[in-house]
Design a protein around this nucleic acid. Structure first.
Lengths: 138, 138
DNA sequence: CTAGATACTTACCAAAAGGTGCATACTTGT
DNA sequence: ACAAGTATGCACCTTTTGGTAAGTATCTAG
């Protein structure tokens, strides 16, 4: 872990490197997209859609456009008649995807823990909802 | 980069380790909080507030509570009369903070690039706003 | 006596994120 | 002839997120 000084004084509007990174990968799906494209090489839109589960078309397209605008992914349109398009990583995107690997490992290593914590939280929420309901019923 | 198979088949509701991690650090400020606390050791609320620039009290407290509930940070209340509280990382939190380091480095290494891209995007947006305004003026 | 610091809490409101469903234009399979 | 797949675009709406401003209790400095 570098000292605080490497992080505090920076140009532009970023408070530190992490801040800069976050502006680029903020968004519910971007890290996942990056990660899947990194694994599969050039990936067709439909394949990505199936890989990143629960993402809607709207969101996937939107995030892909932003990633493209940010120079992380490259869109290739083959101009074929049933549309064919695929997405691949630029060198910049590839380097970011690599920086994402430790996060992926952390999640894999601590998934049991995370699952447990989330179960507890949901239990609490259900409790609150239940009590709200009963309060409203009076 | 591990093969796709390490990522696809998992328990609970997570599609992969990265997905699990993201559920925990999602939120505009959480990675930054984690990172600053990792650097400073036990950090007082006010110090954190000043370190994570532009964060409001509401947000900072909220995210701290979630991080605490998720077992990543530990809150210590000294019960003193002008309130004194500090936040430190749990072992789990420390391991996550370490997984964040590559992201921080990436941001630092590519800050020029990121800055440039963001400047372009803002220029485009301003253009759109301007054209919208002129269209509305007719 | 008033201002400011401490660590929050709450209510209210605006903005952003995200979901659903419909439409496109063309091809392939039934 | 009709449904499904292909990669999007668009309009509408709800949910989530986040900001602002005020308030709390106690202490210290001016």
């Amino acid at each position: 872990m570098p000292p605080a000084e490497t992080c505090t004084p920076t140009l532009a509007g970023f408070t530190c490197g992490l801040d800069a990174t976050l502006r680029v990968i903020a968004g519910k799906w971007k890290p996942l997209i990056l990660y899947f494209v990194a694994q599969g090489g050039p990936t067709r839109y439909g394949a990505l859609r199936r890989a990143v589960r629960d993402v809607s078309d709207k969101m996937l397209i939107q995030q892909l456009k932003e990633l493209e605008a940010d120079g992380l992914v490259k869109r290739t349109d083959y101009k074929e008649i049933p549309p064919r398009v695929d997405y691949s990583l630029t060198p910049l995107g590839r380097s970011l995807a690599e920086a994402l690997v430790p996060l992926c490992s952390w999640g894999t290593d601590n998934m049991a823990e995370v699952t447990r914590v989330f179960a507890e939280r949901e239990a609490l929420q259900d409790g609150r909802i239940a009590s709200k309901r009963s309060a409203a019923a009076e």
